[in-house]
């Protein structure tokens, strides 16, 4: 077999990528831990917060539940991309998944295609579940204007890209697969507390607001509030407006930061082959 004949018949990056998507999704949905983490946990949070504070109003005519759903959908971006990958990849590095793949002719890009697609699919599923529970039990109103749906789309996509790249980079931090969730989950929780998910953002101390403004979740949550709250609620934001341009800019900046971090830090094996 001549080399050129073999290379012309090698399956392409996209074809193998498609196969990766299918096995990644199969593995994801068959793994009970990831199902609980990604679907049951956000739902339970919504039920708890919705039941305790749901009736209270954060502004005239706006229930806390409505405010909270926006924050949980923003959190969903972080769960399905950053948290998921930063926990799953250390396990894959440990159980031999990545080493096996490295020993095959799979193009590395195909692996990332598989991961990214899993992130987008699980995020979609999570949004559907959260909105369904919100509508069924807490009177959540869906976005009403085309502009709001458009904001939902770009905020989701930019946020998922940024947090996926950060998740790839952060996957080198946990020293063991088993310890990964203990390292990753607190980071997500702290961001949720400080970014206006569990509490109304303007009620947080100044230093906390400044801190969380450095990270994407604050901007994602703000953009999602513009989607789920009526336009009049913009007056309740720090600057008195949704600052959608700034939200998009910060998320885009985090896409760039994430890309650089992933390129510099991502490793296939513990020994450190790139």
């Amino acid at each position: 077999m001549s080399v050129s004949a073999a290379s012309s018949r090698l399956p392409g990056t996209v074809a193998i990528g498609r196969r990766r998507v299918s096995v990644e999704l199969k593995q994801f949905f068959r793994d009970r831990n990831s199902a609980v983490f990604n679907f049951a946990f956000p739902m339970v949070l919504l039920v708890i917060f919705g039941s305790v504070f749901g009736g209270q109003e954060v502004a005239p005519g706006i229930s806390f539940a409505q405010y909270f759903v926006a924050g949980m959908i923003a959190s969903g971006v972080l769960y399905t991309s950053f948290q998921n990958l930063a926990i799953a990849i250390p396990l894959e590095r440990e159980d031999g998944t990545l080493k096996r793949l490295q020993g095959t002719p799979m193009p590395k890009a195909s692996y990332f295609i598989g991961k990214a697609a899993t992130v987008f699919v699980t995020y979609g599923a999570q949004v559907v579940i959260l909105v369904a529970v919100g509508v069924a039990f807490y009177d959540i109103r869906l976005p009403s204007t085309a502009l709001q749906w458009f904001t939902f789309l770009w905020a989701s996509v930019l946020g998922l890209i940024a947090c996926t790249l950060c998740g790839l980079a952060f996957s080198v931090v946990p020293k063991t697969g088993r310890g990964a969730s203990a390292v990753v989950t607190p980071i997500v929780l702290v961001l949720q507390f400080t970014s206006g998910v569990f509490f109304v953002f303007t009620q947080l101390p100044q230093w906390m607001q400044v801190f969380s403004s450095l990270f994407p979740l604050k901007w994602l949550a703000q953009a999602m509030r513009s989607v789920f709250l009526p336009d009049s609620a913009a007056a309740g934001e720090v600057s008195g407006s949704w600052e959608l341009g700034l939200c998009a800019g910060m998320l885009a900046l985090w896409c760039v930061i994430g890309l650089v971090l992933a390129l510099v830090f991502f490793r296939w094996t513990k020994q450190g082959t790139t």
């Binding site: 080399v3 073999a6 290379s7 894959e92 159980d95 031999g96 998944t97 096996r100 020993g103 002719p105």
Partner: peptide, 17 residues
């Protein structure tokens, strides 16, 4: 990749898949 496609590798400790 062409080179890799002609190798088969059975490693020692695999618990993946």
């Amino acid at each position: 990749r062409v080179w890799r496609s002609q190798l088969g590798i059975v490693l020692q400790t695999d618990r993946d898949l």
